[in-house]
Computed example of a mutant assay.
Amino acid sequence: MKRLSTVLAASLMLALASSPSFARSTSFARPAFPSSHLDDTIVVKLPNQATMTLFVKNKQQLREMRAYKLDSLMILLDTYITQAETAGKNSKSEQVTMEFYPAKDQPGKQVPEQIRITMRNDQGGKSTRSGDKVEVNMGRVFGMKVEENADGKGGDRVSVHVGDYGKDSLATAKRKAKREADRNRAVHNNFTIDLGLNTLTDVKAQPGQMEPDLKPVGSRYVSLNWLYDIRVGKVGSPFHLMTGPELSFNNYMLDNNARFINTNGVTTIASEADRSLDKSKLAVTTLNLPLMASLRFKGNNDKDGFRIGAGGFAGYRLGSHTKIKYSEDGRTRKDKDRGSYNLTDFQYGVQGFIGIRSLELFGKYHLNDLFSNDRGIQAQTLSFGITLLH
């Protein structure tokens, strides 16, 4: 394969494409062959009888190619094509594809993010055809395909395809570019919702006090989470740190016709004797800040696979109230009473999650007592449930 002539032809083609005089003097014409994905074509005949054809969607693609430094780009292409040729000669396969990532190797320079080179041969690198093909995918949106074919009359034809060629449209390429950019970002912000239940552990009531008997389904937990997922290490590292504000709502719904009351500065639980309660609960709103370490592994089709994380949290109580619902004189009544109810203001604990793909389960355990010492029942809150991912 005449590698050097192909690279020089591609270099000239791109140089012409980025030249203002070329843009003024060159006209666009429709391809002579059917094409559903290419809109315009530019045909350039050189003095040595070689013909180059440039296919583009529009003039904007030509202008955007000016961002690349052509000399450096051609050196890269020459180096990578040499490696691809060597691999093709040593391979028994009819096609060898190699991918290079110059942007990662040369951070801070204006070079393509990805270059993919495909060498096709009929007999494992020993081509008996009249020509070979090299496909170069530059960056995440633009692509270039160089075809070198001998016409048997002493001339060569080189076609350079820029933009969306093959099966992918420009819109598809842009979507792929966005997904690739998202994967490469070190920090992601996510909004999630935790839905679960509350229960009390290590309950210790004072002598003569009732212990809380919570309704399992009625004691609900809801949390709105704005989390920052920070990758630690290079692209592809499974180790992440997670933090961000959480607005949590803890509900403790009592059973057995009981309610929370304040008596002589102490929060207790009392049984209602004169009326039947349809609902009786204590609701607490807190603002938390978690810090968790996690391991995240990719699954099939580059989707999230297995993940697990654990850490701690600290928070502050924003508000609280009790609410009872009952019937009286044939009418439904709801009484709401706002107050601190001797609840602990500052809260802290441990939490964790485990998930795979779109399914994620969480658990959160408060290390502090729900109520202040000697002013309420001693107990810790355990919350667990499912996380709704954005």
Results as ranks from 00 to 15, higher is better:
Lys364Phe: 01
Asn251Cys: 06
Asn189Leu: 11
Gly265His: 05
Phe260Gly: 03
Asn256Ser: 11
Gly139Arg: 13
Leu247Ile: 11
Gly155Trp: 05
Arg231Asn: 03
Val146Cys: 10
Met1Ala: 08
Ala273Phe: 02
Gly233Glu: 08
Asn149Asp: 04
Arg296Leu: 06
Tyr365Arg: 02
Ser276Pro: 02
Gly363His: 03
Thr344Asn: 15
Gly154Asn: 09
Asp156Asn: 11
Gly265Ala: 04
Thr192Val: 07
Glu211Arg: 07
Arg231Cys: 05
Gly376Ile: 07
Met210Ala: 14
Ile354Met: 10
Glu113Ser: 09
Phe239Asp: 13
Pro112Gly: 06
Gln209Tyr: 09
Met1Tyr: 07
Pro107Phe: 12
Asp156Arg: 05
Gly311His: 11
Gly355Glu: 03
Leu73Met: 13
Leu359Met: 09
Pro20Tyr: 03
Thr51Phe: 00
Thr332Arg: 04
Thr86Asp: 06
Thr172Ile: 08
Arg338Asp: 15
Ala379Asn: 02
Leu343His: 09
Asn190Val: 14
Leu8Gly: 03
Leu361Asn: 05
Val43Glu: 15
Gln61Pro: 04
Asn48Ile: 03
Leu77Asp: 04
Leu197Lys: 12
Asn225Gly: 01
Pro290Cys: 12
Ser91His: 08
Leu200Trp: 01
Asp337Ser: 11
Thr267His: 08
Lys153Trp: 14
Gln206Trp: 01
Ser25Phe: 11
Thr128Cys: 00
Ser383Thr: 08
Arg66Leu: 05
Phe260Gln: 05
Met242Lys: 05
Ala205Thr: 15
Ala17Asn: 09
Leu12Ser: 12
Asn300Lys: 10
Ser19His: 07
Gly218Phe: 10
Leu73Tyr: 14
Asn262Cys: 00
Asp78Ile: 00
Pro20Ala: 12
Ala177Met: 09
Ile75Lys: 13
Pro34Lys: 06
Leu382Phe: 15
Val232Lys: 01
Leu200Glu: 02
Ala10Thr: 10
Ala15Ile: 00
Asn250Lys: 12
Ala205Asp: 12
Lys323Glu: 15
Ile115Glu: 08
Met242Cys: 02
Ser294Gly: 15
Ser358Arg: 08
Asp302Glu: 10
Val187Lys: 15
Gly166Pro: 10
His240Gly: 01
Lys336Trp: 12
Thr172Lys: 00
Ala32Gln: 07
Phe346Ser: 06
Ser36Asn: 11
Leu343Tyr: 11
Arg63Ala: 06
Lys334Ala: 02
Asn48Lys: 01
Leu170Tyr: 04
Leu289Val: 11
Lys126Glu: 15
Asp182Leu: 15
Asn58Gly: 07
Lys89Trp: 09
Tyr365Met: 09
